[in-house]
Design a protein around this nucleic acid. Structure first.
Lengths: 161, 161
DNA sequence: TATGGGGTTGGAGTGCGCTCCAAGCAAGCG
DNA sequence: CGCTTGCTTGGAGCGCACTCCAACCCCATA
């Protein structure tokens, strides 16, 4: 059975004073400066639907998105990073309401660092629990699968007996 | 970061010809023979609600449950084992409809061994993917958490400067 | 100028997995 | 006997996370 390792990351002193802390090693479709993506581009990049993107904005999961002169949304690289992170949180099973709460903390600024840290730490604990549960499930599946494999072997033996 | 190991299990030739293959190392509340649990006992054991237990039966996720002479449900150890397994499948994110499909295969008997094996193998692949995704998420969380920890440190330093 | 292809909105609808309700029945107890 | 407790049923309702609809706007190309 393969086993993955979690890399503990360091965020150096170059961490900028931005909403989205600690720049991820992600490559953006276009460099900063030319990052004014239409909603359909973001759909293509993220796999989310346009409905979902607009809905995220309505419920406050994304802060106000830039608009073109005709009122169309123009997403930035930073928005993509945030969507990336939201995707991670979604995978942990965190309810959308909690993500909105985190987004609000981000909008409130640096004074909420401690609360954000605690929220993420709690999430981290949940994730560890989830992983352990899944490992457990994996063991059960392996047991059952090998039961069926054995049954197959036995039948084969009987057939060629 | 700790890492769990998945134990590959063997199911010996003592595997009985039962619906619920390969007996788990689970301890039952009462030994076989005295296992006629009321619905509220099962609620206590499993953490599910009575509503959910009845619903599981209605949709075919559990085969018909024994009844007392007055028509009340009496669950067996085997039923508990099945609920245990269902709980594992639920944790993988498998839709209830798929679990019902598996339950149907079990009811159809030995002829469906191959299909069951394939279904479980697919589930197993999903679980591995999920675990990998969660490990990934963990790395992101760790990065952000340590960003906030660093920010804390810096502030502390500034305060006592 | 018409047509098509993108985008906008508020609000309604959907699918899943429960969750609850109302009405009723059987057993045990004071 | 009345009362409580625990169970029964079919069907309705709920919360979540989308998902879609209708009506509209803007702009580029034929």
């Amino acid at each position: 059975m393969t086993v993955m390792q979690t890399t503990a990351a360091t965020s150096g002193p170059n961490a900028t004073r931005t909403d989205i802390c600690s720049a991820p090693p992600r490559r953006h479709p276009r460099p900063d400066g030319q990052d004014r993506y239409t909603i359909s581009e973001v759909v293509a990049f993220t796999g989310l639907t346009a409905h979902t993107l607009r809905w995220y904005e309505r419920i406050g999961l994304m802060s106000h998105i830039d608009r073109s002169h005709t009122g169309q949304r123009r997403y930035t690289n930073r928005d993509l990073d945030w969507l990336d992170f939201v995707g991670k949180l979604r995978m942990t099973g965190m309810p959308v309401a909690d993500m909105v709460r985190y987004a609000e903390l981000v909008r409130e600024g640096e004074s909420t660092y401690a609360q954000r840290q605690e929220l993420l730490a709690a999430t981290r604990r949940d994730v560890l629990t989830r992983i352990a549960e899944l490992q457990d499930t994996l063991a059960v599946l392996d047991r059952k699968i090998s039961f069926y494999a054995d049954a197959d072997r036995v039948r084969e033996a009987e057939r060629t007996r």
